[in-house]
Every structure is written in structure tokens, then in C-alpha cells.
Simulated scan of single mutants.
Amino acid sequence: MHRITVIGGGFAGLTAAITAAEAGAKVTVYEAHHTLGGRARTADGPYRANEGPHALYSGGPHWTWLQQRDLIGPLAPVPLLEPARLRLHHKGALRRTLPFALLKLLRRSSRQAPVDTDFMSWAAAQAGEEGARAAAHYSAVTLFHHDPGSLSAAFVQQRLRRAANPLSEARHPLGGWADVIDRMAARAWNLGVRIETLARVDALPEGHGPVVVATSLDAARRLLKDDSLTWTGGRTALLDLALRTRRGDAFAVSDLDAPGRLEWFRAQDRTPARAREQLVQGQIPIAPHESRADGIARAEHLLDLAFTGWRERVTWRREAVARGRTGAVDLPGTSWRDRPGIDRGDGVYLAGDQVAAPGVLSEVSFNSALEAVTLAFGIRRRLDLKQARG
């Protein structure tokens, strides 16, 4: 029987553990914290707030994998009537429709963007500078980066298309992502996976077998003492609010003047907040020189526009700064293939959202976890990740 060690009990680590156990391996997972989940944790208490707005995209490869194993669980109903309550902050005011120039860039028939040009330059040539800037900022819902226009045009275009109609793909598990993680952990346990929490690993054991390092890239760099394990990410200011419900509140506010988004989760999930209250979660990208206060100020400006009298309706509030929220972002001239490789040699493999695997956000974690296990077992015929889309 194969033996494999997984370091990190987040989405990538549990995906790797389940995949390996299903293939007949004896698996041990080490998690440094007292709970599993990584960035997929959900706060305890009356407000089931994720660590930043999260969604599962049903068009992604992990959707089929999770669904086949009955790991997704109940979903919040798709709010079919909510597009009318989507607000767009553009030119200092709230609007209901996307700028025409932005719509040109969203067309599936539009030209494929190049890898080696920044998005702002390429998009401005297609739809003008104003449309390019609005499109770059609109893509922040799947990027969470302070300057999307500076990134690879091909990279941003892919995410912009995924964000174009989030109601067609975005799904929200009832009870938050923590419930998905709990189901994954239970499946791993039933498959015989040994899970140890509060078990920080500072060095790989001598004579170790295959090891999947499913931590943040920073933690992997320290553990493996490999300074090459770096990639561009981003910082965001997080603002979570419980508000007393008021008729006419926006369902979501997407900022086209600067990257950022607020979203109302009561319309999708009745469990996050108490009766007659709604949970609003915002994630505002901030530049390296900006502070949490800068991001929170921009979030509050959007609240002033879209949630009348919100300050008098607040019953709970939480603020934070999050690092690496973007996963990997690709600069001009780079693609996912240029990120740190999964196979590190000597039986060590990386998994996570900043390594060399395709996909959007958590899809990168999933794809890299499957590839890591495939490589660890030496399977000649590798899983076709395109087929995993179902």
C-alpha cells in the first residue's frame, strides 16, 4: 500500500487526501491549526461569515468531483430576480447596467487576449480606455487584486468572462464553506485518512515517502527552504456587517471606478444572519502602500450609496486585512505554467492556489492537488483535468 503525507488541511490538502485514499493509499494529514479549512473556514457564532466572500463555480472541474461524492451539500437558491438589484458604481454614481464598452469585451466572440501584454493596453485598443478600466475593475470579483489592468491580458480576460454572469455559475453552500470542509473531512476519515490538527510541521522527516505540501506558498517556502517558491498575489481589506433588513437594499455592488465588491448573503442563504438581519461581506483590494483604513473607507462609501442608513442598522461588524487572497495572479509574459511547479523532486509535491495548475481561484487548488497525487503515485496515464469539468 502506498503511504503519503499531506501537510495542510485546507481545500487542497483534503482534496489530495481523499484522492490518495480512494486510490488505496494510507494517508496522514497534518494541520497546524486546531480546525481544518485554511481560507475556506467559516466563522463560528450567529453569523456564518466566510473569510471573505466565497462561491463555488459550477462550471469548474471541482464542482463535478465534489458533486459525485455528495460533498457540496444543500445550496442557497439561485436568486433569479436579483440581477435587477445588482448595482454598479461607475463615474461616482450607482447604475443598473454595464457600460457598452465593457459589454464589447465580454462577448465570447471577442478576440483572444495575448499573454504578453497587460490587460489595460490590450482592452483599451479593443474598447477604449474607459471601457478597459471598467472591465479591469469588474474582474476584481474573481481577482481581488488592486490593479487588474497591469496583469496579463489573457489572465484577466478569462476571469472577466467567468465573472460576466455570476448567477449562471456562482453557487453558495448553505452554512458557508465550513460545511463543505466538514463533509470532506468526514469522507477522508471514513476512507481511513489519519488527520492530526495542532500539528505544525517544521521539517520533512528523514526517509519520508511522498509528501504533498498543501500550505500557503509562504509556508511552503519556509518548510522546504526554497527561496524560488514565490509568486505575485495581493492584499484585501475585509468588511463583514450584519444589518437590519431594509426593503430596497442592493443585492450586490460592483465597483467599476476601483476594484471592489460588496455582496448581500441573506438573499441566498437564510442561515448566515439572525432573523430580520442580512449579512453583507465586502472585499476591497488594497495596494502595498495602502492601509486597512483605506480599503474600509472605500467599502463604506459603497455602503453609503447602496444601503441607506446602514450605520444605524449595524448589529455586528468585523474588519480584517487578508494577504494572498487572490491566489496566483499572472503578470504580462507569464501564465499558470510559469508558477512554481508541482513536482519539487525527491518525492515532494506542491498543491494550492499559487502553483502551476490551471483554473480560477480554488480550482487551482483542486487541479494541483489531483496532479500532485497522480505524480506521487507515478500513474502513467494522468487524469485529464478537462474531462473533470463533466
Rank of each mutant, 00 (worst) to 15 (best):
A12M: 06
A17W: 08
T19A: 14
T19D: 15
E22D: 05
T42C: 02
N50I: 02
G52R: 06
W65V: 02
P77L: 01
H90V: 04
P114L: 08
P114Y: 10
M120H: 14
M120V: 01
A124R: 08
G131R: 05
A136V: 05
S139N: 15
S150D: 13
S150V: 13
S152Y: 03
R161S: 07
R162P: 03
A164S: 09
S168N: 09
G175I: 10
W189E: 12
V201F: 03
A203N: 02
P205W: 13
G207E: 05
V213P: 00
S216W: 12
L217R: 06
A220V: 01
A220H: 12
A220S: 14
R221I: 05
L224D: 05
K225H: 12
K225Y: 00
D227M: 04
S228N: 14
T230R: 14
W231F: 00
D240N: 15
L243K: 01
R247I: 13
P259Q: 12
R261S: 14
A267H: 06
P272V: 11
R292W: 10
G295E: 00
A297I: 03
A297K: 02
V314K: 02
R318Q: 14
A328V: 06
S335D: 14
I342K: 03
V348W: 07
V348P: 04
Y349N: 07
V360D: 14
D384T: 03
D384K: 00
Q387S: 15
